[in-house]
Structure formats: C-alpha cells, structure tokens
Design a protein around this nucleic acid. Sequence first.
RNA 1: CGGGGUGUAGCUUAGCUUGGUAGAGCGCGUGGUUUGGGACCACGAGGUCGCAGGUUCAAAUCCUGUCACCCCGACCA
Length: 511
Amino acid sequence: MAEPANSSSKTAIMPRRDEDFPEWYQQVIRAAELAEPSDVRGCMVIRPWGYGIWENMQRHLDAMFRATGHRNAYFPLLIPLSYFAKEAEHVKGFAKECAVVTHSRLEADADGKLRPSSALTEPLVIRPTSETIIGASYAKWVQSYRDLPILINQWANVVRWEMRPRLFLRTTEFLWQEGHTVHETEAEAWAETKQMLEVYGRFVHDYLAVPIFSGEKSESERFPGAVQTLSIEAMVQDRKAIQAGTSHFLGQNFARASGIQFQNREGKQEFGWTTSWGMSTRLLGTLVMAHGDDDGLVLPPRIAPTQVVILPITPKQETRGAVLEACDKLAKQLREIRYVDVPIEVEVDRRDLGGGVKNWEWIKRGVPLRVEIGPRDLESAKVTMSRRDQATKMKESISMQEFVSHSAEVLDSIQRNLLERAKKFRDQHTRVIDSKDEFYDFFTPRDATKPEIHGGFALAHWDGSREVEEQIKNDLKVTIRVIPLDNSSESGKCIFTGKPSSCRVIWAKSY
RNA sequence: CGGGGUGUAGCUUAGCUUGGUAGAGCGCGUGGUUUGGGACCACGAGGUCGCAGGUUCAAAUCCUGUCACCCCGACCA
C-alpha cells in the first residue's frame, strides 16, 4: 500500500492513485483485464481473469456456507409485480431501480422494425433481490416448526437500474449470492444474522486480506424492509469506506408479507423469522482499491486465479528447448503442492513476446509470484523469483528445489503481508474524534476544487438522531458506516449536539 | 430527472473558428534484428468523421433535429 511513488519513476498505471484515484481504478481494471464496460449502459463484461477471481471467491464462500448448514438452490429471475408489492418498505426502497418486463414477444412493424407486442397481463420485475419470490416458495414449504430452519443460498445475477454505474462497484446487473433463511424463533434468526456476518468478516479478512469493521447500520442505511441490517466495512486506499457484505435480520416482516406461517410447538399459527445476507462482485472492486498499487492489481494469493506464473527466458535458440522443459517440469512439481486445499495454480507463459512485456503484463494483473527461468538459471539449477507485494524490480535467485518446497510458504507470506499493510493503512487513517471542529476538519479537503485524498474513519459519539446524520451527510457527504455491535461501549456525549451517547460510531465517506 | 460537456481507426487524439479528397501516436499484422525490466527497423491493414435531415459546386468543418456517452446534483451492494 502506497509508498507514494516519486513522480520521476515510471508506473504501469497512469494516473497514479494520488493523482486521480477514480481514474486509476478504471485503468487498473482495464490493465489487469478484469472487466470492461459493455454496449449496454451500466452492464459490464467480466473477463476471464476477473471471473477467475470471482470463481475463487465463490468456491471459498460456498464452502463456508455449507459448513454452516446451508444448501444452494435457484429461484426465478422474474418476479410477479404483485409479489414484489407485498412488503411496503421493500417497495419503497427498490421501486426506483426496478427493471420491468412488460411484453412477451417481438413483432416487425410496417417499417420492418421489431417492436414489443403482446403485453403481459401482469408485469414481471427482474429481481433486484429475491426476498419476495423466495418467500413465496417458503410459504409453501413451511407448515410446522419441524420444517424449520430453512437454510438456503442462491448464486445469481440481479438487476438494479442504477443511475451512476461504475465497474464492479455499482453496475446495473451484478453477480452475487443471497442467503435466505427462516427460523422458528427470533433468537435463532438473530443468531443466524450474526453468524453470517461473522462468516463474511472471516472470508474478507482471511481470503481477501482486507481488515474490516463490523456492526449494525443506522436506520437510514438499513435494507428496505429489514428490522436490522448488519454490515462489514472495509477501508480502501482513498480512505473511503466500502460495504463488503451485509446480513439482515428481517424479523417477521417478510414472513407476514409472503405468508410464511407455521404451527409452533404450542399448536398455534406463527409467522417465521427470516434473514437474508449477500455479497457481490463488488468485492472485486474492493480488492482492486484495497491492494492495488501504481503498477496495477495486487492479488492475495488465496484468491488469485493463478498463483505462480513461470516466464521462460529464451534468448538463444540452442537453449530454448531445455528452458521450456525446465519450466514445464517446475510447473508440474508446483501443481503437486496444495495451497488452500487445492493444487497451486501455475501458468507457463510461453507466448512469443518480449520478456519485459510479459513480465509487466503479469505485474499489472497482480499475480502473486513471478518466476523467471533462463539459461543461466538452468546451469545453476536456480530460479529467479519476484513477489508482487514487493518492489517490481526486486528479484531473488534461489535454488529450484528450495523454491518448490517453499512456494506455499511464500504465498502465505504474501497473503499475510497484504493483510498487514491493509491493516496498518486502515489504522493510520482511523481516528478517535471528540469535537465537531476536528470532525469537520478531518473530512474537509484542503483543496476544494480538486480534493486530495483525505479523511478516513472517524470514531465519534452520536446522539442517535436522524437529524444529525442528515446534517453531516449534507455538509460533508459523510455517513455512519456502522454502529459497532459488541463494542466495549464507552458512553459519552454527541460531538454535534452534546446529548448523551452510548457508544462511538464509525463515520466515513463511502462508496 | 435537472445543469454542463463530448462524439473522428481498437485506444488517445489533430483537423472544425476561416468548408476544398482525413492526419498522428499507441496498439494490431508481416519480415528481420532482438530478448535476464515496458526493444528496434522496414513494410502493411484499419475511418460511411455518432445518426438523420438541411445549406452548398463541395460538409468532419456551417445550420436543425436526434441518439449515445462523460462530468456535477438527488438514490444504491
């Protein structure tokens, strides 16, 4: 993270982070071949490298879901408008961003232009989230307390008609998982809500190497229709917060709306207690902004689609065959080593390109380890290794055998280092603040016309009122990210109104 | 949806004020020299100048309309 590059040194990504962070972000995504905008406004094409990262995220998350008793299923993309309309708050929250299917066929008109014809009797909403359609199924499945709990997850795409799309962070269509559960008691549902937040926190921390703060959302930031929303928040390198995962305690709101009812142990009809929780491809954006540097993406080994790339150096035709052979042999040996439960992913880049070009391409893609093997290495049975978490020019020459036996260890060391850096960065920019002036100063850039990277997380007392939140949001675009849950809650006075406050909350600008 | 801006090759763009056959850099292809940190030389491919009208002998250039995208504001994983 961010030793500020001195302006004379050439970086692979222009502009640098400190020059124009949003533009840098876009350029990294392009240079790393993660994704690109499509012809459909707000939608993106996720390229193999980006999708590979997503697949790894899926793999690990899915294992964690299974381990906590959840199973996958799939529900329809199209939701009857009448289902959707059942929960009033839900409608209020999502209505503005719903895409609606109103017709079932195309017909050529007189000019030969295709036009929708045959209007549907009931319009269908493309799911922005699936509480209502899944609720309809659950209503049928749940009769008795013996049917509970229901613990289901689905991997799906959803559509939210956003006004301002940004690759990964906010796109019209995105990929995610949504867990939907029904429980017999309020306490169980709450335990589930918290458990899944904990799962998310562990995933992001252990696999993405991103430290998080967790807690509950204030009323204004709550999921539409939820009783309570919990969230994990990460800090990225422009010091803004990004919500990395959310878990909702839905109380009986959706059960009531969908008619999820069961006969309880006393023989009485009762509404189920439901939860829902989700993580999306937004995590890819989080990853880019959390670990990327001025040379491109930096991937934590645990989710990198390729952990080791082998670059054959073949300056002379005579040695070419031997070098390639050695590369293949090394790749084979590495693939026999398991790293986070599966064989290490290795790629031998045999493309006929200049060595420097290939090297830089892999730097930009963020592959954790680059290994060069050339004629000189062959003679001494060595390899030349570079780690993506270190300066790009740093190289280490070690024996091939040693490299093979230590590779998993080195990957772990990179993983740990990325987490450490991110943690240090976050802590450096997290501040306990006890006065309104200091708070305003903290969140005000010195150059208003071209705001520099500033601010961070502020831990400050808040009186719990919506008015204060509103005011701060208007003045500074700063919002409460989370109200820490467990917090060894130190009470105090609201720094804005002087009224009593039961704990410090986390304030930040956010994505 | 309000306010501002921009549309020229895959990307970045010059040309537009003052109409006269569309130029460059990067990238791409071929051949060669190269190759342990972003190589070089030669040749080459690629553009209905967003789209539709209009003015004119003649439109990338002027006029009208339209569409798309970008930035700024209100909403969001």
